[in-house]
Simulated assay, not measured.
Amino acid sequence: MEHVTDRHALEVLSTAESLRLLGSRPLGRLAYVDRGAPSIVPVNHLVDGHTVVFRALHGAKSDALLMGRPVAFEVDDHDPSRRVGWSVLVRGTATPVSDEEARRFAAELDSWAADTAVRHTIVRLVPDEITGRRLRERTEALVTQDQGPSDL
C-alpha cells in the first residue's frame, strides 16, 4: 500500500483517520495561554463528531480557555522499539457546552481531580485545523509529496 508523505517522510493522515486515532486514546495534552505564558496539561477527552470535548476545572485554566484565544490539543502513540508512531494535532477555539450536553458528557469523562466535588466546566474544542502524521517502519512503500511543514 502506498502512502502520501510530507517532506520529512512522515505519512500524512486524512481527517477521518486523524479523528479515529484521536478517539482511540483517552488521554491527550491541551495547550493554551494562561496569563501570557504557554501551558500544557493532560486531559481526558472524547471525540464528538469533528470536535474534542474535555473537562476544565474552574479557575485559571477554564478562564484562560474560554477567552476565545486559540488552543491546541494533541494525542499520540509510539513504539520506540520498532520506531513507529503517530501524532494528531487539533487547533481551534474552546467553547463551553450547553447544560444538556454537559450532563451527557460529564458521565463519560473521567476527571483528574481526586475530589469529585470540585467544580468543572465541560469544554468543546471546535477545530480550525486537524492534522495527523504517522511514522511507519521503513520497509513500507511510501510516495513522497510535500505537504508543507510537519508538526511532528
Rank of each mutant, 00 (worst) to 15 (best):
D48C: 10
G49K: 10
G49P: 08
H50T: 12
H50Q: 12
T51W: 08
T51V: 07
V52C: 12
V52Q: 11
V53F: 13
V53R: 10
A56D: 08
L57H: 10
H58Q: 15
G59C: 13
A60P: 04
A60C: 09
A60N: 12
S62I: 05
D63L: 14
A64D: 06
A64L: 07
A64V: 09
L66Q: 08
M67A: 15
M67K: 15
G68D: 09
G68Y: 10
R69M: 11
P70S: 15
A72L: 10
A72K: 10
F73A: 07
V75E: 06
H78A: 12
D79N: 14
D79I: 02
S81H: 07
R82F: 03
R82S: 08
V84H: 00
V84S: 09
V84P: 01
V84Q: 04
G85A: 04
W86Q: 01
V88M: 01
L89P: 01
L89Y: 00
T93W: 01
A94N: 02
V97I: 00
S98Q: 03
D99G: 15
D99M: 07
E100I: 04
E100Y: 08
E101G: 00
R104C: 06
F105H: 14
A107Q: 14
E108Q: 14
E108K: 11
L109H: 05
D110Q: 13
W112P: 07
A113K: 06
A114V: 11
D115V: 06
D115Y: 07
D115F: 07
H120S: 15
H120G: 05
T121E: 14
V123R: 04
R124Y: 04
R124I: 02
V126C: 12
D128N: 13
D128A: 13
D128W: 09
E129L: 15
E129F: 09
R133W: 03
R134D: 00
R134P: 02
L135M: 12
R136G: 02
R138W: 02
E140T: 03
E140W: 03
A141C: 06
L142D: 02
V143W: 02
V143L: 10
V143T: 10
T144P: 13
Q147F: 04
G148Y: 06
G148Q: 06
S150Y: 04
S150N: 04
